[in-house]
Design a protein around this nucleic acid. Structure first.
Lengths: 347, 347
DNA sequence: TTGTACGCGTTATCAG
DNA sequence: CTGATAACGCGTACAA
């Protein structure tokens, strides 16, 4: 292995000078050139490990992803990478495979100084534990949050979005609207559920909890819960699924049962993942600004890692209702909410 | 930050002894206990950076993935992680976003000693460059290969699999069989193309290159190429797509054009990704042993990293033809090939 | 069985 | 502007 000492010898200077050249510090043009030549000739690459040990910075951020095979998260990752590149940071992906015991990852890596910060796209960890970590280390949560969250996070307003898309179904004349919810332990999904309830209440539609089922994020689960609902109450005319993956499973179940979508039963989802627009029929859903969510999350983390003051603990970004065919309203008139806000807790 | 010195002081021993305890070297039970207590009390975590700098080993492997949003790769990653865990290695994911200029990743990370080895699920890099890297550093290629590959790799027999699934269409009576191929610069896709040609030749079906289109791995691309084919030659009665993502796009195009699948046109794919079995109709395709591919790749890399001799340069694993409805042969009789072989080049 | 001392490759401080 | 040197935290000969 070829080190900074080798370069120094070859260039006839000290290692300190080589280091200076490497970091664009003040060096005489002449000596700088000599060093550059030596570097090129020897094909020298600084040892990142040694640099990191010395500077106590790794310029690396770990992203905790619940499930990388869920395409919803990939676009968020792109956004994170976009922003990370701006500041020359590396991204490390930790895939949880949807298992909830993720504490290990947080602790191991950051306590061993392998990384400078964490972006978590998951919030299954206990609230107090998360807050404890957040006090000691830079961490930002994206697309997930907990009640009265004091951990820096960026998200959309799930209640408002769920209300909006449910109202859309109501405005199309539906009153028997089922909901296939996500994990009730996640505030994210509780919010979507609450948005659904709020929309019904607002329009004086009686709330019937027998129309609510709880699924997990898989096509199979959406299929199963829809079958259950159909079996139990054939009068259902619309379904709001808490995620697109669940929604497409529900569509499959409906079609298999001889129901036409949207004529016999409308279906709407949440997230706008890629297959949503390619499904048959194309899915009406809520689009989250995924790339921007990722970018915002990283920029927030960057401030945290470099002791810049945070304007707000929580950033709330805009969402968009994507009207496609699965809801029966085949018109190219998408609705946008324009309420990017920053809820200020003043850290 | 709390270091090994702090622990040593607290336990009243030298840092060397603490280190020995950490690595289960010979230490008197009594002192060992004292050290353990100090570690626990101070909540000491070894600094991984320092360890790695000292030992010149990171126990980390980078996996180069063409596109993490393609679910085909996630299961391979699981397999890699399975095997990595056995040996206490960390996995690092590098997402290429389908861009071919990946040399940077290989070099940067491994030359800067941040990683011990590479598993590449991509082979867009020039052959000689790849071989040059392979001579200097531990690297294994999975699911991809180049002609006369001297770089350790693990894969299925794409020619044989493509031949088998094309023959299945032939046996169902099809003669006008189109092929939507993948990137012809990739031997992987050339092999699938060649398998298609071989099957036609074997059954004396005239080869008509106007039935062959080249797509990329996206639903949209499959859709576009199928539209083109339909427009050009409505007599096509079956399509072999070089990947499932392309295949489902093709199905969408067919249905939109008023063709029934499989009655008017059969479709088969390759890879067996999750949505394949949930599409309408469910897709007949080739299943690759993804998990095992990943495991095998890591174990091969492990040998390389630890100077164990390699039995073979190339491992060829079994594939499986998954017969579903999209080919019109709705019978639960899947075919397996049982020919796991290791082509011996003797390194 | 344990402690001392050095070195992994780099950067930062302090003189000059 | 440059060089000598200490230090980052750890593992391991070597000696005791």
């Amino acid at each position: 292995m070829i080190t900074i000492t080798d370069v120094a010898k070859a260039a006839g200077v000290s290692t300190a000078t080589v280091s200076r050249v490497l970091h664009n510090k003040a060096v005489k043009p002449h000596t700088k050139e000599a060093v550059m030549n030596a570097i090129k000739e020897l094909n020298y690459k600084p040892n990142a490990l040694a640099q990191q040990l010395r500077t106590q910075k790794t310029k690396t951020v770990i992203v905790v992803v619940p499930d990388i095979s869920n395409t919803f998260f990939s676009e968020i990752l792109f956004g994170i990478e976009d922003a990370a590149r701006e500041h020359d940071y590396q991204i490390l992906i930790a895939d949880m495979h949807n298992q909830p015991n993720i504490e290990d990852y947080y602790f191991q890596a950051i306590q061993q100084r392998t990384i400078d910060g964490i972006i978590s796209l998951s919030a299954t960890i206990a609230k107090n534990l998360m807050e404890q970590i957040a006090e000691e280390y830079p961490i930002v949560v994206a697309c997930q949050y907990l009640d009265n969250y004091m951990v820096p996070n960026v998200t959309i307003d799930n209640i408002s979005a769920a209300t909006a898309i449910t109202e859309h179904l109501i405005q199309l004349g539906h009153t028997r609207i089922a909901h296939i919810a996500g994990d009730p332990n996640s505030l994210l999904y509780r919010d979507r559920f609450n948005g659904y309830i709020a929309a019904l209440a607002k329009h004086n539609i009686p709330i019937d909890l027998s129309l609510v089922r709880y699924g997990v994020s898989s096509i199979q689960s959406g299929y199963d819960e829809m079958k259950y609902l159909l079996n139990q109450d054939p009068s259902i005319s619309a379904v709001f699924a808490a995620g697109d993956i669940i929604a497409v499973g529900a569509i499959n179940a409906l079609k298999e049962s001889g129901k036409r979508v949207p004529e016999d039963c409308a279906v709407v989802g949440f997230d706008d993942i890629e297959i949503a627009s390619f499904w048959e029929p194309p899915l009406t859903t809520v689009r989250q600004p995924r790339r921007k969510l990722g970018q915002t999350a990283f920029r927030k983390l960057y401030k945290l890692m470099n002791q810049h003051p945070l304007k707000s603990v929580q950033d709330v970004l805009d969402y968009e209702i994507m009207i496609r065919e699965s809801c029966g309203y085949n018109q190219n008139l998408n609705r946008k909410n324009n309420t990017t806000k920053e809820i200020d807790y003043e850290m």
